Amino acid sequence: MPHPNPHGLADQITRQLAQLTDHLAQLPAQQANALIARVIDPEHGILGRVTQLVITGSYFAKDQAERGVLPAEVWLALGRAANELHDIGLDLDEQADALAAVSTRLATAAAQPTAAAPLVVRRRR
């Protein structure tokens, strides 16, 4: 059954995503990692749902472009966005286990400082 006001639904979801972002910024590490893992879940997470939304928009834009209502560039741009989001989702899905493991480890381990891992390796000259 279609939502009686899809624009209102989109606005409501946008507000809720902003609230979720604010909450994420304030969560302790364990909860933040678990939330991120949920968000990037390819089947049930927000990223997967947004990807599906863009894919559906691409199908709509293709139909509209074939009818001459929309420029073909709109359909192509939505198709590229859908492909990029899908690829990003695949890349992030590979990291889901690491996020879950860190969340579990943080829940069971005492608060001990850990050594930071270097994110940039510099070449020696």
Rank of each mutant, 00 (worst) to 15 (best):
Q30H: 08
L70W: 14
L85W: 02
L119Y: 01
R123N: 07
N5E: 15
E66Y: 04
T114Y: 08
T108E: 13
A115C: 04
A72N: 03
R124M: 05
V120E: 04
G8L: 15
P118Q: 09
A81G: 04
L27R: 07
R49E: 02
S58R: 05
L20N: 05
P6A: 05
P71M: 08
H44G: 04
Q31H: 11
H7R: 14
Q112N: 04
L106R: 05
E73P: 02
N83I: 08
L78Q: 03
L17T: 05
A72K: 10
Q52K: 07
Q52T: 09
D41W: 00
A10Y: 10
A18R: 13
T108Q: 11
H23V: 10
I40H: 03
H23Q: 13
T21V: 02
I88Q: 07
L53A: 13
K62N: 11
A82Y: 00
I88H: 11
V69R: 13
E94W: 06
A18V: 05
L27G: 00
A65Y: 12
A107F: 12
R105S: 12
H23G: 02
A115I: 07
Q31R: 13
I88S: 06
T114E: 13
R105D: 12
V54G: 00
I36V: 14
R105I: 09
T51P: 01
L78M: 10
P118A: 12
A81T: 15
L47A: 06
Q112G: 00
E94P: 00
Q31K: 07
V39F: 03
D63T: 13
A61S: 07
Q26D: 13
H3D: 14
L78P: 03
A100T: 08
